[in-house]
């Protein structure tokens, strides 16, 4: 059994690395083979938006190391993502990786889910609203099922070693991943959010001011106030529309993306004519 830690921090021996390594120590103690992969050691270029991964299966024109990361995730039985939060969300390299995962989507059909967890060290309480959303997107696009998440309040480099509770939690999360692989029990073990699928607490209010949506899953529900507390309810039927369901993501690709090729070709001459002035503007 192999457990892979993806580290989204540039810092060497920083809090992210310490927490991830502690999680790997826990996994190793449970008998797993472990690997620590620093995303920043790899060249992960920005998605060029060329559409090749969408219009030709498994082709990406960006020549860098991203495929190595995808191969390592593919080969692993469980994944632990770690990344610091510097400004409300995770580091840019995680988003860069998310944008490149379209190529993974082609191979989703028939893949069994694997367990994953995320650990995020951060400095100031209240400055972390989007950290789990990014992790959820990455996990969903890579066929990983989140079984736990942790935000760890710590600040200076390596200071997290002073927090015995955080170290113990990371250790437990590493052991949990191994247990989940062994038992194939991928139930969520972390603190519950408002969305029962991604377990996040983020909600989007739609324009009708009646409907709310989990912005990650794209599932709609309603808000109620019960005994002075906000209660969020999603109809059972609404889960069929979750954007990460296999059929929904298949339909998105098949009916929203692939046919755009026809539209693109049909508008070719007119587009060329209208866009000419932008090609010339400020270019001389």
């Amino acid at each position: 059994m192999k457990i892979l830690a993806l580290n989204g921090s540039v810092r060497k021996y920083g809090n992210t690395e310490i927490l991830l390594k502690q999680a790997l120590m826990g996994a190793e103690a449970e008998g797993a083979e472990v690997e620590h992969l620093k995303l920043t050691d790899y060249e992960i270029g920005p998605c060029q938006g060329c559409g090749l991964c969408l219009f030709r299966e498994n082709v990406c024109q960006v020549k860098d190391n991203t495929h190595v990361i995808f191969e390592k995730v593919e080969a692993a039985d469980g994944v632990i993502l770690g990344a610091p939060c510097y400004f409300l969300e995770l580091t840019a390299i995680v988003k860069q990786l998310i944008d490149r995962t379209w190529i993974v989507g082609h191979n989703k059909i028939g893949k069994p889910p694997k367990p994953a967890s995320v650990i995020v060290p951060y400095a100031t309480r209240g400055w972390i609203p989007y950290i789990f959303m990014q992790a959820n997107i990455l996990f969903n696009t890579m066929c990983l099922t989140k079984i736990n998440q942790a935000a760890i309040c710590t600040q200076g480099i390596s200071e997290v070693v002073m927090d015995e509770g955080a170290i113990a939690l990371a250790d437990r999360m590493g052991r949990e991943i191994v247990e989940a692989v062994r038992t194939q029990d991928l139930h969520y073990r972390g603190e519950e959010g408002v969305c029962p699928r991604c377990h996040d607490k983020l909600l989007r209010v739609l324009q009708d001011r009646e409907t709310i949506e989990c912005p990650t899953c794209g599932v709609r529900g309603k808000l109620y106030i019960v005994n002075g507390k906000i209660d969020v309810r999603f109809e059972e039927e609404a889960w069929k529309g979750c954007r990460f369901n296999l059929d929904v993501s298949y339909n998105h690709y098949t009916y929203h993306i692939a046919p755009s090729k026809d539209y693109f070709l049909r508008t070719k001459d007119e587009r060329k004519k209208r866009s000419q002035k932008y090609r010339e503007y400020l270019e001389k």
């Binding site: 296999l246 298949y250 098949t254 692939a258 046919p259 090729k261």
Partner: peptide, 11 residues
């Protein structure tokens, strides 16, 4: 899954 090849079809 209900599937369809749409890449090279007219909208």
């Amino acid at each position: 899954l209900l599937m369809e090849e749409t890449m090279n079809k007219r909208i």
